[in-house]
């Protein structure tokens, strides 16, 4: 039997990448800053966004959010209490959001009505790293209850992030969390990453977060495009 090799050179996630690329152009045209938030389940993504949306609204900004979960719309209801437009994406078993789901859930929204769109990804530190959602900024969160070595255990996702947020900082002392070590590990897997320390309970660190959001809205249209 003779055989022959046929070159294909095709990206496996090409379809997702193309859709993400279209979304990114739409977001940029609308002047909308889009952030994709990834973490383990329970890290505090929803709590972080609840406070973020509430404070942004109080300051006169126009945020919106999409929130991905396997099932239920509990998180969307928590976020909608801020008064911001929020939509739930149920993935029914899928462990990550894909660009197509984002496109579908934007239907009927006028993007120009918003200045910032937050996308809470499905709680998972592995799969979301492969799927570009057209975001300008990827934010990876880790809580002080998860251990300082989380970035070393899941380097792929932390490497793909532009910003790291250490959450539940109000519990740091009780957990004997070593912030210096956590920062060192983050810089090891993603040299130069911007790191914030926050508590959604006390509000600590949110001033720095809001200034960062402001500078992102003013400047860098797409930190994340450089990665894809």
């Amino acid at each position: 039997m003779t055989t022959r090799i046929v070159e294909l050179r095709k990206g496996v996630l090409k379809k997702n990448d193309e859709l993400a690329h279209e979304l990114r152009s739409r977001f940029e045209d609308a002047g909308l800053l889009v952030l994709n938030l990834v973490s383990s389940p329970g890290t505090g993504k929803t709590a972080f966004l609840e406070r973020t949306l509430r404070e942004l609204r109080a300051a006169g900004a126009r945020p919106a959010a999409l929130v991905g979960d396997l099932e239920t719309d509990n998180d969307a209801r928590r976020l909608a209490a801020s008064g911001a437009p929020v939509r739930q994406i149920n993935t029914h078993g899928r462990c990550h959001l894909e660009a197509e789901m984002i496109g579908q859930h934007l239907e009927g929204w006028n993007l120009a009505d918003f200045d910032t769109l937050f996308i809470e990804n499905v709680g998972n530190l592995v799969c979301p790293s492969s799927y570009d959602l057209g975001e300008a900024v990827r934010v990876a969160l880790l809580s002080v209850t998860e251990g300082e070595d989380k970035p070393l255990k899941y380097p792929t996702i932390f490497n793909s992030a532009d910003i790291a947020v250490i959450t539940k900082i109000d519990l740091a002392a009780a957990c004997e969390f070593d912030l210096g070590l956590a920062r060192k590990n983050l810089h090891e897997v993603r040299p130069g990453i911007t790191i914030l320390e926050t508590s959604s309970k006390t509000g600590e660190g949110f001033d720095a977060w809001h200034s960062l959001l402001e500078s992102l809205r003013a400047g860098h249209p797409s930190l994340h495009a450089a990665h894809t």
Partner: peptide, 19 residues
């Protein structure tokens, strides 16, 4: 340290061998 990654994110079908 370097954040300038030149290879490592690939997920690509390179080729197919046929009869």
């Amino acid at each position: 340290p370097s954040g300038d990654i030149r290879q490592g994110r690939e997920l690509e079908i390179e080729s197919v061998e046929i009869e």
